[in-house]
Computed example of a mutant assay.
Amino acid sequence: MTTPVEVAVTLAQLGGVSTSADLRALTSRRALRAAVAQGVVRRLGRGTVALPALDPTQTTVRAVQGARSHLSAALDHGWAIAVPPTRPMVTVPRSGQVSAADRARVRIFWGTLTDLEVANGVTGPARTVVDCARTLGFGQALAVADSALRSGGLTRNELVAAARASPRTGRSRAVRVAESADPRAANPFESMLRGIALDVPGLSVEPQVHIGGAEFIGAADLVDVRLGIVIEAESWAYHGDRSPFDRDVRRYTAMVRAGWRVVRFLWADVYRDPAAVHAVLTDLVGETHPATQTA
């Protein structure tokens, strides 16, 4: 039987926020109810659940005359994130006064806020992505940007323009994230893996590429068509049960048979040892010659 803690772990792998239906499908209705009752999962309304530490109370936000920002704002916008923050993240005006108690509860950022952001208690979509891109690691920020584009509430052009207009400190990081963001990315895990792959010299990957042409084999998480490399993000949270797992194994076999080089990484590999993942991909590129097959 799935425990409440296991429900929280699954939710973290889904990006910290999910629909109740998707989380129930990977755990169970009873386990989700227990997780909510024990406070390890919080209902946000509209059939959405999230990890509780990610959302500061409105009272705290109003007390500091600020707005949810960065990853907390991303969750408020309904986007998935890769790594939950240890404390909620709030931006306050540079002239704002923040008590020691509030500093202990939330992570404070200082900056300019619009009247609308203060009134709504959350930074706007483009601002939220740019804030994350300027302050977080590339993979984490890419996960936010991918989620934002995937939601349909923000276009790539809007995101790139906002990044180029952002403050000088961190602007180059923001522009890189904006230009690399892709709504085809399936989830934050895949985005994190793509962030590592994009730092490997000679490797150029695209997300969710269909393999097999007329004889369709399946969609691959990340593909370098020129080198004939398929990179897969493997997590039990995305398989759920035995049937999807079996289907994926057969799909990988078919890809190898068709001439593709397939490499698979676990969630723990990507999140806890990205240097090792980078080293594997670097070695793979060094051993691979441009492929002749087509996606």
Results as ranks from 00 to 15, higher is better:
G15E: 02
V230Y: 02
L149F: 12
P125Y: 03
V205R: 02
D199Y: 13
R250N: 12
P207Q: 04
L113D: 03
P56L: 04
G15D: 01
L266P: 02
V130M: 01
H77T: 06
G124A: 14
E206D: 14
A73M: 10
R250L: 13
L113E: 00
G15C: 02
V280Q: 09
T2N: 15
L44I: 05
R168S: 14
A100T: 09
V256E: 08
T123E: 02
R134V: 07
S191K: 02
D283C: 08
P93Y: 10
G212M: 08
G47A: 05
H77G: 01
L75K: 02
R247W: 12
R105S: 03
T19N: 06
Q58T: 15
H278Q: 14
L159M: 07
G212Q: 11
N120I: 06
G139D: 09
V262Q: 04
W236A: 11
G137K: 00
Q208C: 07
V205G: 04
A145P: 15
R42K: 11
N120P: 00
V106L: 01
V256K: 07
A37S: 12
V209C: 10
D221E: 05
G16T: 04
H210K: 13
A163W: 03
E117P: 02
T60S: 12
P52N: 12
E232Y: 11
V17C: 06
L23F: 06
A104R: 04
I217R: 04
E215T: 07
L32Y: 02
R29L: 12
G139T: 04
R173T: 08
A35Q: 04
T128V: 02
G121M: 04
G212S: 14
A100Q: 10
G78T: 03
R168H: 12
D246K: 10
Y271I: 15
A37Y: 08
Y252L: 07
A37R: 08
R29D: 08
A165M: 09
A80G: 13
D199L: 10
A37W: 08
V130W: 01
P188T: 08
E234G: 09
R184P: 05
S243Q: 08
T169V: 11
T3C: 00
R62S: 07
A50R: 12
V129F: 06
A276D: 07
S235C: 06
A161R: 15
S243P: 05
F189P: 03
P85V: 07
E287M: 06
I229M: 03
A220Q: 02
V230H: 01
A181C: 14
T294M: 07
V9P: 00
Y252A: 14
A220E: 05
L23C: 06
G139K: 00
V285W: 05
N120A: 12
A237D: 12
D55V: 09
